[in-house]
Design a protein around this nucleic acid. Structure first.
Length: 474
RNA sequence: GCCCCCAUCGUCUAGUGGCCUAGGACGUCGCCCUCUCACGGCGAAAACACCGGUUCGAAACCGGUUGGGGGCGCCA
């Protein structure tokens, strides 16, 4: 925590917000912005709020609001107060707009979109930077349709402090008289944000770097309105592999798709937090650790590329770290359809199946797939699964092991002792023996540890599969 | 075109003037461990964009160049 933050957090409660517009699914860039806000709230003992910015009635859809909420909840980023819907605050926005007009800080502009387009085109042709020229600033009479624009100073400069980047200064001549209220009476983003952040008591505006250019506009409005400026911080962007701003065409559109792919929430959080934030050499974090360790001055300034190599590595680690019981109920909740073939399996057995596989895979679908050798139908034995001499050995080993294990308790230790004892006695290399046994039990070459597997499969299955193999052998 | 932001291995990053012949992690490639697959251990290749300053001393500070990103809507 840097000095400014410390002063701030000592004097009053931190309140941050995540303000998505429901015009698309929550992509991972948005998810990370939400995460940083949430972590900052947790680290400072503040509140994390959700505001749905649905002032664009045309493009806003309820299914996107649902997607955003579900994504946040899946990740565990629970908001602390009822979500605010910007569209329900219309009256308040109009009220503030009127105050601005009354003070002469906003004015009506009846330029049509066509007229503006012509001006814009003209500026572009002359290679001049386009800015609304203030045509209507002092006009007395207006057409029926008009917008409200702010009256911004033409000279001087606007400065604000970014907690990550330091002071940022913009000449006022580069800030145009932008639109506050549309022809249809709805507020624009930059206007609604300022009013809402102020009314919601937001102390820290933490958002993506794509908003840096909006900040001077908003800062000017705060001043015009007589509001205290909140602290600002702009996070670097997450870019796609082509180094362009993340969008639909970069693989997964919605954060929820990562859930489907089999990543855990803690995996996403661990991965996302390291895109732009660091803590010495530490790479692996639990969510609880993050809630204590997160701070703004360890956030970097440079953009990061969303590269899933490390995501998979973290996934393996988090999968291994999750208690089998929790992992099992997570799988039951989100992969119900995928595990439906194992519906009849005793829950405790199912959980031990999860336990012996979770350390070997990186994603949940892989885990479910590997459970097939435990709970699926008996395997068939491909003819080329074992070579000639291996078949001879297999026949001997399985024939001997069958009665030996039939009278043995089915615990990992006891099974291991019995089988290893047998191998020693017969002077058969354990590797060869294991290969034959594995083939008998799975019909393949890859499986969980032999004894863990047998213990989960149970005496009946093991014995039956031993018989099956013997029958298939010449 | 104009404005803003940024710049260390392929990728994520450490680094706040001397500890840097630049550290960690992912990925890659070897070797080891091992009942297979994983895990784990050891090792290798791999970066301070460029040019000028400032300084006894720059990856670090300043300026410029180049490169990248973002913005320039009655979208958010």
């Amino acid at each position: 925590m840097c000095k400014v933050e410390r002063e701030m957090t000592q004097n009053s409660k931190v309140r941050v917000r995540f303000p998505p517009s429901p015009t698309g699914f929550l992509h991972v860039g948005g998810a990370r912005t939400a995460l940083f806000n949430w972590l900052f709230a947790k680290a400072t003992g503040g509140k994390f709020l959700l505001r749905i910015e649905d002032t664009d009635r045309e493009r806003s859809e309820e299914r996107f609001t649902d997607d955003i909420k579900e994504s946040l909840q899946w990740l565990g980023l629970q908001w602390d107060e009822e979500p605010v819907f910007q569209s329900k605050r219309l009256d308040r926005h109009r009220e503030v707009a009127e105050q601005l007009v009354a003070k002469g800080l906003a004015y009506k502009c009846d330029c049509t979109q066509e007229e503006l387009e012509a001006i814009r085109k003209n500026f572009l042709e002359k290679k001049l930077p386009y800015r609304y020229p203030g045509t209507c600033r002092d006009k007395k009479t207006h057409r029926k349709d008009f917008v409200l624009r702010v009256r911004n100073p033409d000279t001087g400069e606007t400065r604000f402090t970014d907690l990550i980047r330091g002071d940022i200064t913009i000449p006022n001549k580069d800030i145009e008289d932008w639109v506050l209220v549309r022809t249809d009476g709805n507020p624009t983003y930059n206007f609604a944000v300022v009013v809402d952040d102020h009314d919601m008591g937001i102390t820290h505006v933490l958002r993506g770097e794509d908003h840096i250019n909006n900040t001077p506009k908003q800062a000017l409005l705060y001043k015009a309105l007589g509001y205290d400026l909140p602290f600002f911080a702009h996070f670097p962007m997450i870019l796609g592999k082509d180094k362009a701003k993340l969008s639909k065409r970069h693989g997964a559109a919605s954060t929820l798709e990562y859930r489907k792919m089999g990543y855990l929430p803690e995996t996403m959080i661990n991965f996302l937090v390291r895109l732009g934030w660091s803590h010495g050499d530490q790479e692996v974090f639990s969510v609880d650790e993050l809630k204590k360790a997160f701070n703004l001055d360890a956030v970097g300034k440079a953009n990061a590329i969303f590269n899933t190599e490390k995501l998979d590595w973290i996934s393996g680690i988090q999968l291994r770290a999750k208690p089998a019981k929790e992992l099992t109920s997570y799988i039951r909740k989100y992969f119900a359809e995928e595990i439906s073939p194992y519906a009849s399996i005793d829950p405790a057995r199912f959980e031990s199946g999860v336990a012996i596989i979770q350390g070997k895979v990186k994603l949940i679908p892989e885990l479910i797939e590997q459970m097939d050798c435990l709970f699926g139908p008996d395997p068939s034995y491909p003819a080329d699964g074992l070579k000639g001499e291996e078949k001879v050995l297999a026949k001997q080993v399985i024939t001997d092991l069958k009665p030996l294990l039939a009278s043995n308790p089915y615990t990992v230790e006891s099974l291991e002792k019995a089988v290893r004892g047998y191998a020693e006695e017969k002077e058969i290399g354990f590797g060869k023996l294991a290969k034959a046994t594995r083939f008998a039990l799975t019909g393949g070459k890859i499986s969980p540890g032999l004894f863990e597997m047998m213990a989960v499969q149970g005496k009946e299955t093991v014995s039956r599969r031993f018989d099956n193999l013997l029958k298939s052998l010449p």
